[in-house]
């Protein structure tokens, strides 16, 4: 879709001869689409920058988004898309900033006249499409980055491992447990066992709305991994309907201790580690 040398020269001429007209008409066309959500001045500044980047590219060679000397053009397009993506504009609203240049060029070409009008317009259109696609990809990449960041923040927030007692840590699971989250929970819990030297961990699933085979597998794997490291896990907070699902799915919890509530689980652990016995004797004395 790259322009040839002649087309490139004619595009540069067209853009540089009518600088004010181009940016003015371009800004107007885009502003209509963005319905005032970006100030005219800001928009004009962005488009002037883009305009300049196209001209700079033309000075250094033919105008082509993929060319080596078009790094500045790509940077400007990328910056424009990232800005739009962060400000919550849609993909269409982002791409329109580039595509609106077509109308402007068509007007200029018609005014110029001559037999190459049609051929030039097709060539320029191709270039603008290419720029539009580049914008779109930058936009999507930025959005994906945002989503990934948010997902990570959510993971951080939703998987606390707390120390309940000397030698006892607990992880209260809240919300849906998918594979990625289960992995984070597992790693964090096991690392906490090492860091605190705790031989007991309570996995409380009171806040987990549903348990399917996959979730159960993740919990079971965590328990087995903890055992390999020399720690024992207790699962608490299994609600009646979840107990029914577990049995219906045929999931074997084997010899893993399960308790109705976090309190029961803690009591169980303290009894195992001999803490409660000493407390009772103290109370008796």
């Amino acid at each position: 879709m790259a322009l040839n040398a002649e087309e490139s020269g004619r595009l540069a001429a067209l853009l540089s001869e009518h600088v004010d007209q181009v940016t003015q008409r371009w800004t107007e066309a885009v502003a209509v689409q963005l319905r005032g959500r970006l100030s005219q001045a800001e928009l004009r500044r962005q488009l002037q920058e883009l305009h300049r980047a196209i001209l700079t590219t033309a000075e250094n060679g033919i105008v082509d988004v993929d060319a080596e000397h078009a790094a500045e053009l790509r940077a400007v397009l990328g910056e424009l898309s990232r800005g739009r993506a962060r400000q919550g504009f849609s993909a269409t609203e982002t791409a329109i900033s580039v595509y609106a240049l077509k109308e402007v060029l068509l007007e200029l070409l018609e005014a110029r006249g001559g037999e190459s009008v049609l051929r030039d317009f097709v060539a320029f259109s191709g270039l603008i499409d290419q720029m539009g696609l580049f914008t779109f990809e930058s936009f999507v990449r930025t959005r994906e980055g945002l989503i990934a960041d948010q997902a990570e923040q959510l993971l951080e927030l939703s998987t606390p491992v707390v120390k309940l007692w000397d030698g006892v840590v607990a992880v209260p699971l809240v919300g849906t447990l998918d594979s990625a989250r289960a992995q984070v929970v597992m790693e964090r819990l096991l690392q906490t066992l090492v860091d605190t030297g705790s031989p007991y961990a309570i996995i409380d699933i009171t806040g987990v709305p549903a348990v399917d085979t996959q979730v159960a597998q993740h919990v079971l794997k965590t328990v087995v991994a903890a055992r390999l490291m020399g720690a024992e896990c207790i699962i608490s907070g299994i609600r009646p309907q979840i107990a029914q699902t577990i049995v219906a799915l045929g999931i074997e919890f084997g010899d893993i201790a399960t308790k109705a509530s976090l309190a029961d689980a803690l009591r169980h652990v303290l009894r195992l580690s001999g803490v409660e016995t000493s407390r009772r004797s103290r109370r008796g004395a």
Binding site: M186, E187, L190, Q191, L193, V194, K221, V224, A225, A226, L228, M229, G230
Partner: peptide, 16 residues
């Protein structure tokens, strides 16, 4: 015999 000090990443890998 007691095996001690297994790292979390090692335990997870062994389970897998």
């Amino acid at each position: 015999t007691v095996v001690v000090g297994m790292r979390p990443a090692v335990a997870i890998t062994l389970v897998e």
